[in-house]
């Protein structure tokens, strides 16, 4: 299951360069949203800090804060990174790293800012071009949505859906027993 060792090592070497360049190119002025995202991160994962902020910002666009908490406050980006690291999704780890780098490059090319620094409207517009633009890359957005919704609506035992707030939004009540409950049979 998952990514085999040889592929994994190749990916790390290849991606190492890309992220180094991306990091060097951007003056990382983190906005408060980015700080929150990093604060809720479960320690460093397989992404660089900059890639993680791009991921967090993109997750937040999928499920933004309004009168109810958004993806970052719910802990979804950290969940997404951990699931990608686990190897449960064959090939997705590398795919996400590349896509996040490209998303950031697109932001730099268009606005001379990192993706995380863009206004939400600019971020949405950029993601929209990935779905419907002239050279669409809808697979990234659909996979991002797949994992973001898992991080938003999963049982809080997985680190996402903090306080079960996303369940409240849709009127879902969990059933007993829950994951992590001591089992009595």
């Amino acid at each position: 299951m998952g990514v085999n060792r040889r592929d994994f090592c190749q990916h790390v070497v290849y991606i190492g360069f890309g992220s180094y360049l991306a990091l060097a190119a951007g003056a990382c002025r983190c906005r408060s949203e980015g700080d929150t995202a990093l604060a809720l991160r479960d320690g460093p994962g397989y992404l660089t800090a900059r890639e993680y902020q791009t991921l967090a910002a993109a997750c937040e666009r999928m499920f933004p804060a309004d009168e109810d908490p958004g993806a970052i406050a719910l802990g979804a980006p950290s969940f997404v990174e951990r699931e990608l690291s686990s190897g449960a999704f064959t090939g997705w780890q590398e795919f996400f790293r590349e896509s996040l780098g490209d998303l950031d490059s697109d932001a730099l090319a268009r606005h001379q800012k990192s993706f995380a620094e863009l206004d939400p409207a600019e971020q949405d517009a950029l993601l929209e071009t990935w779905v419907h633009g002239r050279k669409p890359r809808p697979l990234f957005v659909s996979r991002l949505m797949h994992l973001t919704l898992e991080g938003v609506f999963c049982d809080p035992v997985h680190g996402g859906n903090k306080g079960g707030a996303a369940w409240t939004l849709i009127g879902f009540a969990p059933s007993a027993p829950r994951p992590g409950d001591p089992h009595q049979m």
């Binding site: 609506f153 035992v157 969990p174 829950r178 994951p179 409950d181 089992h183 049979m185």
Partner: peptide, 10 residues
């Protein structure tokens, strides 16, 4: 039964 914990992810 210990595997049946209503966890949608798992």
């Amino acid at each position: 039964p210990e595997d049946m914990v209503h966890d949608e992810i798992r």
